[in-house]
């Protein structure tokens, strides 16, 4: 039996097939080559684009790299002043920013990983089909809200709410830890930015873990239930246990997202210039420092130092992306903003 008989073909295909002739064949060979060439060229362009990004960022950062070296990572002076009378004028170090980036991202993960995994569990294993069909897309819509709007909401709604509830509660309960120092009543800080980041990372984690859990074979879940396990025991013992590496990979991808966010952090972190023990104090991150100072930069060295900050972010992102791939293989893909 030929293929033609057992496959329903659109009429166009058959027509094209029938009229394929000699001259046509020559055109076809050309066409094939052009199609392949264009597709291959575009793909090559994607690879070249990454190389170009690295090249532009590194060359932009070069003056600062050669001036401050690797010490840029931990030096805490960031002084754009050009007047010669000021000590350390036009000296840059990203220590405060690296600290702020790491700490805000850590806060974001501490909040969003358990919540995101819980939502993944809910969407894939607990909700009935219809409800999951509503809740799932809504959680994904959260990822579609632009960061500038999340940030605006963070300034006006979230930060004041935190300042009057969570912050004092944390201080009262855990105030003996320096990180939960006396919260200020006004002003924004690292903790506010961390919570905003948590909200932005949450839908990513929820979406990845949902797919992860949904792909755990049904036989395994049934096997656990048939042994007299409750649903939670089944989830913990089989679903979460067998997807550990995937959850770690999802966490790394969430981390990458948190590390690189600039706008919403700029709006909520309070643009501090020093490292404070308390999370309720202001701070700054690599991304938000770029967003704040790039346009108003007063010297070439300041611009180069901001490029240097971008380079650090770039390296962090590459490490995270490669790390996630190594841990989970291709089973976990970074998902787009939605779907």
């Amino acid at each position: 039996m030929s293929r033609r008989e057992n496959t329903a073909l659109p009429r166009e295909v058959v027509e094209i097939g029938v009229v394929a002739g000699g001259l046509r064949r020559m055109v076809d060979r050309m066409g094939d080559r052009v199609a392949f060439g264009a597709a291959a060229l575009a793909s090559l362009a994607a690879v070249a684009l990454i190389a170009l990004v690295i090249d532009r960022v590194v060359s932009g950062a070069m003056p600062s790299i050669s001036r401050f070296g690797i010490g840029f990572l931990w030096q805490t002076t960031w002084n754009p002043s050009l007047s010669s009378g000021v000590r350390d004028s036009n000296v840059y170090g990203a220590g405060v920013l690296v600290y702020g980036t790491v700490v805000t991202s850590a806060i974001a993960l501490v909040i969003s990983v358990p919540l995101g995994v819980a939502i993944g569990v809910y969407l894939s294993l607990l909700s009935s089909g219809r409800l999951a069909g509503v809740v799932g897309p809504l959680v994904e819509l959260l990822a579609a809200v632009p960061s500038v709007i999340v940030g605006l909401w963070g300034i006006v709604v979230l930060a004041p709410a935190l300042h009057s509830t969570i912050d004092p509660a944390l201080h009262a309960a855990l105030g003996w830890l320096p990180i939960f120092g006396k919260p200020g009543t006004t002003g924004l800080g690292i903790f506010d930015a961390g919570v905003v980041l948590a909200i932005m990372v949450l839908p990513i984690l929820a979406a990845i873990t949902r797919d992860l859990f949904a792909n755990v074979p049904r036989e395994l879940k049934d096997g656990a239930l048939a042994l007299g396990a409750t649903r939670w025991e089944m989830i913990r013992g089989v679903v979460l246990d067998s997807t550990r590496s995937g959850i770690v990979a999802a966490t790394i991808l969430g981390l990458a997202r948190a590390l690189g966010e600039a706008i919403a952090v700029t709006q909520t972190i309070g643009a501090g210039t020093a490292i404070h023990a308390s999370l309720f104090a202001s701070g700054d991150t690599l991304g938000s420092r770029i967003a704040e100072q790039f346009i108003g930069a007063v010297s070439k060295l300041q611009i180069a130092s901001l490029f240097y900050c971008a380079l650090i972010l770039l390296v962090m992102e590459f490490l995270a992306s490669i790390g996630a791939q190594l841990i989970a293989g291709r089973s976990v893909r970074v998902r787009g903003a939605v779907i």
Binding site: G223, A224, L225, A226, L227, G228
Partner: peptide, 20 residues
Amino acid sequence: PVEVRRRIGMVFQRPNPFPK
């Protein structure tokens, strides 16, 4: 049902050992 399944065990068509 948890108690029911604990008393009444089941083995399935395809072997389904846990990845442990």
